[in-house]
Amino acid sequence: MSAMVIERELDRLEGLWSEGLAELYRSYLEEVGRHEPELQPRLALAAALVEVGVRLQGLGAAAAPPAALLMGDLCLARSSRILTDSASQPIQVAFARAVEELAGAAASSTEAPAVRQLLIRALAAH
């Protein structure tokens, strides 16, 4: 993904890049090697946005203040849009199921699988 494309996809989320999003993005890049090269950055960014998003919201922990919740919502929405633009239907569905699983566990106060584990599984969906 060119720097310009990353910049566009981070519109309004720029501040998160230096606060852990960049690091997560790089870590997910290592998990998307089986996909087409041009898709890899988008998939990695989508996964990183989900992980940052649920963290910002405080999902499964203490509720975030409204401003952080809205920022987390935007991360999830952006991730979803990136996936619809570039990922296959099974991956879109698997990402959604990952968030359903996390949110369902959070609402039930049961232990959820690690976010990363769920998202890596979603990235492998086909």
Partner: peptide, 21 residues
């Protein structure tokens, strides 16, 4: 609020999944 965030997230994800399907 914790439950509200989880409920919102769950149905946000479920709706996007149904639409993808």
């Amino acid at each position: 609020p914790e439950r509200a965030i989880a409920v919102g997230d769950y149905y946000f994800a479920k709706a996007t999944r149904l639409i993808a399907e």
